[in-house]
């Protein structure tokens, strides 16, 4: 391939559109140190790495993080951590893109080409020796040649059977790996389902406790939507303190049903043994209720039955030890504008 052809294949390489032979040809060229192709590749790899950033984002199930954190063995710090790969001429960043994580399948049969290579080398060696022997000692007893031929044949047969054996073993290994992968997938799937059920159960429990046996119908979201349409509902907005500048909250109080709704976003996760507590402040703070922000949670809806506090002017959320306190003791996270 000419340099021009190779250079033209750089954008195709970055998009992942080259077949194996072309890829290898370009990689060999890059290894030879062509600066212009290196520079072009760097640009095109940056384009390729940007492509997924343009997709409309889809969030994974919330339970996935827990599954991943639990599935990893905390003790087993990177087994391959210590020795880095011996220095090879580095191809930045194209080479690692394709070689750091080679497709799983080809890696399994690494031993096969090696054996075939050795066999070829051996046969070439023996044949070479025979040729030399024949030329040099034409007159030598042909029985020696016959002997060598016989031994060569024997070796070829042995090699063929070795070759077959390696092939069989590779196949068996691949099958075992597939089976293991399948089992692992099944186990992971079951685990995932279990976690999902647990999450659903938890949600149902929360809803049940929030409703407290009252005759409310529909989900809290439905009820909240209805609430927003009532003109004399008290609405207070809360902003994040220095502890959580990006946090915000929105509080609604319906004196008819004596219910308080607090929708808070971007509050940090509660450290173990703590909980958030909502206060209505008139002369002194009165607790309305507590809620907890779990890992990965970004928004929370707290619904509480509360006595009348129409006189209260200020509302606040503080971080308290689990179970809450009679009076605020911890730092404030959300405060209403007074």
């Amino acid at each position: 391939m000419t340099h021009e052809e190779l250079e033209e294949s750089v954008p195709l390489y970055a998009a992942g559109a080259l077949d194996r032979t072309e890829r290898q040809a370009l990689e060999a060229h890059l290894l030879s140190g062509c600066a212009s192709c290196h520079s072009a590749l760097k640009d095109y790899q940056s384009v390729a790495a940007l492509l997924p950033l343009g997709l409309s984002p889809t969030r994974p199930p919330r339970s996935l993080k827990a599954t991943i954190m639990a599935g990893r063995n905390p003790g087993a710090i990177p087994a391959e951590a210590a020795p880095k790969e011996p220095a090879r001429p580095s191809l930045e960043p194209g080479e690692w893109m394709n070689h750091l994580f080679p497709p799983v399948a080809p890696a399994r049969s690494l031993s096969l080409p090696w054996v075939v290579g050795l066999a070829t080398l051996l046969i070439v060696g023996v044949v070479g020796y025979l040729a030399w022997n024949f030329a040099a000692q034409r007159s030598v007893d042909t029985s020696i040649i016959q002997q060598l031929e016989a031994s060569l044949q024997e070796k070829s047969v042995k090699l063929a059977s070795l070759h077959r054996e390696v092939g069989d073993q590779t196949k068996a290994l691949a099958e075992l790996r597939n089976e293991m992968q399948q089992r692992m997938n099944e186990a992971a799937e079951t685990k995932e389902q279990l976690m999902q059920r647990e999450a659903e159960l938890e949600e149902a429990r929360v809803q049940l406790s929030q409703r407290g046996g009252a005759r409310s119908v529909g989900t809290p979201q439905d009820e909240l939507a209805t609430l927003l349409r009532i003109p004399d509902v008290k609405a207070v907005s809360l902003t994040g303190s220095d502890m959580a500048k990006r946090a915000a909250g929105f509080l609604l109080y319906d004196s008819r049903t004596q219910k308080v709704w607090l929708y808070s976003v971007n509050l940090p996760e509660c450290p173990t043994g703590t909980t958030y507590q909502l206060w209505a402040i008139h002369d002194k703070p009165v607790s309305i209720g507590t809620f907890h922000m779990d890992t990965g949670e970004t928004a929370h809806l707290l619904v509480k039955k509360a006595p009348s506090f129409t006189a209260a002017k200020t509302f606040a959320v503080s971080l308290e030890p689990s179970g809450g306190r009679q009076q605020p003791t911890g730092p404030m996270y959300l405060l209403s504008r007074s």
């Binding site: 790495a49 391959e80 960043p93």
Partner: peptide, 16 residues
Amino acid sequence: WRKVSRYDVGRGTPVA
């Protein structure tokens, strides 16, 4: 988690 030690900052960004 297992192979993070192979990441080489000279060859691309973490996101890439």
